[in-house]
């Protein structure tokens, strides 16, 4: 991870991404002002080659942006856009302005209409979809965008009544697995800040005449949360280890599998420690736990990626050590 990038992004998001901002965007407020501020920082071009005007950071350093976005529960797909721009530029595709995300599922009808389930679909203007084995970039300005998911979710169903004139054909790439890996970085960061506010709360909340952090049952739970938060951070580093040009699906799969599973351990502990206060709309915990549960299901849950990995492992040769080394061996 690049500490300078992390510090700069963290500083920016500390100023720009308050809980009030997250709440407003979730409830439908205009998000373009925030996006323009983020865009002005230039970090969305961090993975674009220097020859195309980007910073050409290695993936392992660009992870800093995803971690910071996750820590702040940024309600815009900035990290996704950074990665997609990196891939588009490598394929020689002109980079559109504004946020871009990959649809998790899309289907076309004979009449030319298209429906897609889009993580972040409420806060993007370009969607990458796969239809009949081909990849397309579709602008959402002519799409009908319908909220999808629980309260405050940023996911949407996007439907186009006719094939958009500006649709652009994209080269094949592992758009889905790469998006899963971006999400792994977001989860790893979000687990860290969730852990921090949980520790803070445990130190402040007095019951039985002492902070609840002094109670062994609480300490043991926080230790478990620390373990899985550390594991998730390592998993994200594995996913972001390989160069963008040498995509390594097994590493991406491990990253998404392990971080998603960590959500299932850590989010319940965070809520248990916070008690009823953490369950309110007012307190800061739910911005993170709600979002992490969404991210966990975006681009394949822990179960999906475990199955993909397992099929690969069982079809391949090699013992447990060989298989576990696979994600870090260059392809």
């Amino acid at each position: 991870m690049n500490q300078d990038v992390f510090d700069a992004v963290n500083h920016l998001l500390t100023q720009e991404c308050s809980s009030a901002t997250i709440g407003a965007i979730e409830q439908g407020a205009e998000w373009r002002g925030l996006w323009e501020t983020l865009e002005a920082s230039g970090f969305a071009d961090a993975l674009v080659p220097e020859s195309a005007g980007g910073a050409e950071l290695p993936m392992s350093e660009a992870l800093a942006l995803a971690l910071a976005c996750g820590q702040h529960a940024l309600p815009l797909p900035w990290a996704h856009t950074m990665l997609i721009r990196g891939l588009l530029s490598r394929h020689g595709v002109a980079i559109p302005a504004e946020p871009i995300v990959v649809a998790s599922h899309a289907a076309a009808s004979a009449d030319g209409s298209v429906r897609a389930q889009v993580p972040w679909g409420r806060v993007c203007t370009q969607v990458i979809v796969q239809l009949q084995g081909q990849w397309w970039l579709l602008p959402t300005d002519e799409a009908q965008v319908t909220e999808l998911g629980g309260w405050g979710s940023l996911d949407a169903e996007c439907s186009w009544s006719h094939w958009p004139a500006e649709a652009r054909r994209l080269p094949a790439a592992d758009w889905y697995a790469q998006s899963a890996n971006v999400t792994a970085g977001l989860i790893a960061g979000c687990l860290e800040s969730t852990f921090e506010i949980t520790i803070r709360y445990a130190n402040e909340r007095i019951q039985f005449g002492k902070p609840i952090s002094k109670i062994q049952a609480i300490q043991q739970q926080l230790s478990v949360m620390a373990e899985h938060t550390f594991a998730a951070r390592m998993a994200a580093q594995i996913g972001w280890h390989h160069p963008l040009s040498e995509s390594h699906w097994q590493a991406l799969a491990v990253a998404k599998q392990r971080t998603s599973e960590a959500v299932t351990v850590c989010a319940p502990i965070a809520h248990a420690v916070h008690g009823a206060m953490g369950f309110t709309a007012e307190y800061d915990l739910h911005w993170r736990t709600r979002r992490m549960h969404e991210w966990r299901l975006h681009f394949g849950s822990e179960g999906y990626w475990a199955t993909q990995l397992g099929k690969h492992h069982l079809a391949a040769a090699g013992d447990a050590l060989d298989l576990a080394r696979g994600a870090l061996v260059s392809s």
Binding site: A235, W305, L309, G310, A320, A324, G326
Partner: peptide, 15 residues
């Protein structure tokens, strides 16, 4: 059993 194998190896990779 693919899913369980994948989960175990994923954990082993990270550990």
């Amino acid at each position: 059993n693919a899913r369980l194998v994948g989960q175990l190896i994923s954990h082993l990779t990270v550990l």
